[in-house]
Design a protein around this nucleic acid. Structure first.
Length: 892
RNA sequence: GGGCGCGUAGCUCAGCGGUAGAGCACUGUCUUGACAUGGCAGGGGUCACAGGUUCAAUCCCUGUCGCGCCCA
């Protein structure tokens, strides 16, 4: 006997290891079954599960478990990401707590008392941290129920994947698609590394626009430039004005003298300068602004780098500013310009400032040599694949977003000045000549060939962008560059499930690398979902204190409840998915409901006879139930196929609660609790059958409770665990049974409503008099007598010619039903109720008449629509007429 | 500034040419032998606003307003 309520804790803790140890999650590349593969978006190895993971991985697991039951050879490829910059940051922060710093060149100014680690020592600490916390997130994914093939778990820095990274870098270099270049890069002065365009977030900042007067050479005149960044004037090498600007065009070709520095700078004509903005004249600092860099190049202006890597003023500036932080330098410069009377005015000004997404400080455009990948070239094939449908996006507008990004893509800066990551396989000779090779030995061979002798080589200290290795994930995890059976069978993978937020970071780059190295896009479908936010639509963050921890929800309501909630949340077209914790509670209640329905079945001897054939059912209620099951089955398959997982969840909810529990269980109680015989046997069998199939249909969404019930129902003994069972195939529908049950449900509902509205005491048992019922109705009433009596609290059903005066009356189909209530009834209230019903129907008839009276409607609308309106009118009118009769009789 | 998405019941959201739906909340009622984490019944909506297309618009088109996201 099942317990009264479902207790997820113990069951979840037991079931998961059981599956895993039985190898239920294993892929079988050797099998003849068709492949279905999803690669997990690898979470940060040292991270922990948040709501985004819970959503993303629930959706993947639902698809995976469904396809597994459908008979595919399923591989859900798990693994973790070394997450270079994020992990390095965490470890650095941890070390700081212990008073340990990094021995980064030039950084020691605040670190006098600190113990400093060199690269090797630091990496040892990171690996230590990984060993300590690396299992956390995979353990939490297990708690969620994720059925990944853990025997194949990979890590972006494990040996095989590192080998893939090296090969990719070297191959792309040799193909000219990776190159080193000196250009402006987004520099994070806190993390002390270059970052890619994508890692820059612009934020609106309320700042100022300073109007500086730059004296003209050999004149008392000034030219006024407006800037949001006064400190960069130390690196100004020119001034740009619009060629047609009447205010300044006469100065083109002349020179100004840069205040505080004394440098002579040229005034150039360039359309970049907007006469409407600021003063119309722009100071040009080629080394510290992307636009200025372009202007500088057009006019051959010198690029003077005035900052060091900490964004402190360097030796290229006048001595008194050296060593100042950029913001201190700003203050000092503004003060001095004011003293010199060179500040014309200062306006408040709101503008976008680029921030590093990790370091959280404004990034500095910084002139350095970095490694770049030719993203434009690599994007060609993915773009073609998206255009011709080799890769599909769900929802479709993902494709447009993808185009928008890929068609305007810039070179991808792949080098990072970090220690944690894949060190770039490039070695430099004494003359800085670079040798790119998969190993130092091979680099040496190349160097020997070049120099004609052995020389000392020095390896490039930089590491690769984290996304470089995750871009290879769909094939590196399958064994590439080796030609493994896994690679042959599972690539391209079936679907990639991820959030909109990493469409460019990750999805686009996987498509680039996959297309290039595998000659085929890495997945057939990209399924994108929104971001989970709190109830108010606010992004969850520690600082706001609105973080909902999925593990707490699992503790409180069970993993299945969380999964159900995530699944029913999934389809929103909005970019954000607001999570109301009450929904999780509702999902927990749903699990309890299913549990109790099973408990009911168990208590009533539901059991599946060997070889039971559902098509042998004779009772209308059972035939109908089996039809409803088939309907749900079909709807769920359709929803899953279309990636409308919320619809699958809603279908399950409505089916289990609204159909099985509310109606089938109640309708069959008289049979199950009545006399023994074939009807009882059949109903017990159908109940057991329906529950067995229901548990299968629910398994992808709620794996734990369903596996438990499957076992408790005794199926495990015979067939093994539920996770490996074949998915149900819908059976045929029975239209006659549907019609009859529709009638029955309406009859019972109408009686219940009338009773409740007239405040007939719930316990009062009334007689049901049938007036004007035909033979079909008589037969139906007879067949369902017990159910009607029980569900609508009736005692006795009899035919009659007219309703007694004091009775409730309802109309269902061709018959009128009277429930004599004697003194209990308030005749006025019953009259009002009937009048309300009549008015509703009359309104409907009126509306339909208006439609049918419209010649354009009748002639232009499709025939079936017109016919349907006529049919509805006739039904409504008949019912209205009968209710009017009933009302008259009440008054009589 | 450019692009996209969203404004539907008190709240969170489905629906997206032809009877407006769910969950939660709310009201009444019921401790009936599966379940009070429940049953039964009910109230609540000019589907943001204004035009247009159509026989017919919550749904398609245009514009306005509000909110959000992405890109500059």
């Amino acid at each position: 006997m099942l317990d009264k309520t479902y207790d997820p804790k113990e069951i979840e803790a037991r079931r998961y290891p059981e599956w895993e140890q039985a190898g239920a999650f294993r892929a079988h590349p050797e099998s003849a079954k068709p492949p279905y593969c999803i690669v997990i978006p690898p979470p940060n190895v040292t991270g922990s599960l948040h709501m985004g993971h819970a959503l993303d991985n629930t959706l993947q697991d639902v698809l995976i478990r469904w396809r597994r039951m459908k008979g595919d050879d399923v591989l859900w490829q798990p693994g973790t990401d070394h997450a270079g910059i994020a992990t390095q940051m965490v470890v650095v922060r941890n070390l700081e707590q212990e008073g340990i710093g990094l021995a980064v060149e030039g950084a020691a100014r605040n670190d006098a008392n600190k113990k400093l680690l060199n690269r090797e020592e630091f990496l040892a600490k990171v690996w230590e941290w990984k060993a300590y916390s690396g299992g956390t997130i995979t353990g939490q994914l297990r708690r969620l129920g994720a059925s990944c093939d853990w025997s194949r778990e990979r890590f972006t820095m494990d040996e095989g994947l590192s080998k893939a990274v090296l090969k990719v870098f070297v191959d792309l270099y040799k193909a000219g698609l990776i190159y080193k270049d000196l250009r402006l890069v987004n520099w994070d002065p806190k993390m002390l590394t270059a970052i890619s365009d994508l890692e820059v977030e612009s934020q609106e900042v309320r700042g100022h626009l300073w109007y500086f007067k730059y004296p003209l050479e050999g004149s008392d005149e000034h030219i006024v430039v407006a800037t949001t960044r006064p400190e960069t004037m130390l690196g100004d090498t020119g001034i740009a004005v619009h060629p047609d600007d009447p205010k300044w065009k006469h100065l083109i070709g002349k020179h100004a003298v840069l205040p505080l520095v004394g440098r002579k700078i040229r005034i150039v004509a360039d359309e970049y300068s907007d006469p409407e903005k600021g003063s119309g004249a722009v100071k040009i600092t080629p080394a510290h602004d992307f636009n200025d860099f372009e202007v500088g190049r057009r006019h051959k202006l010198e690029a003077i780098n005035i900052f060091d890597k900490f964004a402190r003023v360097n030796e290229n500036a006048p001595e008194k500013y050296r060593g100042l932080d950029r913001f201190d330098a700003r203050k000092k410069i503004v003060a001095e310009m004011e003293e010199l009377g060179l500040v014309e005015k200062i306006e408040p000004h709101t503008h976008a400032v680029p921030y590093g997404d990790r370091g959280g400080v404004p990034v500095e455009p910084y002139l350095t040599e970095q490694w770049y990948a030719d993203a434009k070239k690599l994007a060609e094939e993915p773009l073609a694949a998206a255009r011709d449908g080799r890769v599909k996006f769900v929802p479709e507008r993902g494709r447009d977003e993808f185009f928008r990004w890929m068609e305007n893509i810039q070179p991808w800066c792949v080098s990072r000045q970090l220690w944690w990551g894949h060190q770039i396989p490039a070695w430099y000779g004494p003359d800085k000549k670079v040798f790119v090779a998969v190993s130092e030995d091979e680099a040496k061979v190349e160097a020997r060939a070049h120099y004609g002798k052995d020389v000392a080589l020095e390896r490039d200290p930089d590491v690769l962008d984290t996304w470089f290795s995750s871009a290879l994930w769909p094939f590196s995890t399958l064994g590439w560059p080796d030609r493994t059976p896994e690679l042959a069978k599972y690539y391209p993978t079936s679907v990639l499930v991820t959030g909109w937020d990493i469409l460019f970071f990750w999805v686009a780059r996987m498509m680039m690398m996959g297309s290039y190295f595998m000659k085929e896009v890495p997945f057939r479908t990209v399924y994108l979902h929104g971001l989970v936010t709190d109830e108010k639509g606010q992004k969850m963050s520690k600082s706001k204190g609105n973080v909902i921890d999925p593990l707490e929800l699992i503790d409180k309501y069970g993993a299945d409840a969380l999964r159900f909630t995530m699944t029913s949340l999934a389809a929103s077209q909005a970019g954000r998915l607001r999570l109301a914790p009450a929904r999780v509670e509702g999902a927990r209640n749903f699990a309890t409901k299913l549990w109790n329905a099973t408990r009911f079945a168990e208590m009533n001897g539901a059991a599946l006879p060997k070889g039971f054939d559902p098509s042998s059912a004779r009772l209308t209620v059972n035939k109908w139930m089996l039809g409803e099951l088939a309907r749900a089955n079909t709807a769920i398959d359709k929803a899953m196929t279309d990636f409308r997982l919320n619809e699958a969840a809603n279908t399950l909810y409505e089916f289990v609660w609204g159909v099985v529990c509310d109606w089938y269980v109640e309708l069959t109680k008289p049979i199950l609790q009545g006399a023994d015989g074939p009807e009882k046997d059949e109903t017990r069998a159908v109940t057991a059958f329906v529950l067995r199939e229901t548990v299968k249909l629910m398994h992808p969404v709620m794996p734990f409770i369903t596996e438990e019930l499957w076992d408790k129902l005794g199926h495990r003994e015979e067939h093994g665990p539920l996770i490996g069972q074949p998915w149900p195939v819908p059976t045929a529908l029975d239209a006659a049974a549907d019609a009859e049950m529709g009638w029955l449900v309406k009859l019972i509902s109408d009686i219940r409503s009338a009773r409740a509205e007239l405040n007939v005491p719930a316990g009062a048992k009334l007689k049901l008099l049938v007036i004007g019922g035909d033979a079909t109705t008589a037969a139906r009433l007879e067949r369902h007598r017990a159910a009607i009596e029980r569900l609508s609290r009736i005692e006795g059903i009899e035919a009659a010619t007219a309703a007694p005066k004091a009775s409730l009356q309802i109309v269902v189909g061709e018959a009128t039903y009277a429930l004599p209530v004697g003194e209990v009834i308030d005749l006025k209230a019953e009259g009002a109720r009937l009048q309300k019903e009549i008015k509703k129907l009359a309104d409907e008839v009126g509306k339909i008449d208006a439609k049918l009276g419209n010649a354009a409607f009748v002639s232009r609308a499709p025939e079936e629509v017109v016919e349907e309106q006529r049919e509805r009118r006739s039904q409504a009118e008949q019912t209205r007429a009968r209710l009017s009769t009933a009302l008259e009789r009440l008054g009589a």
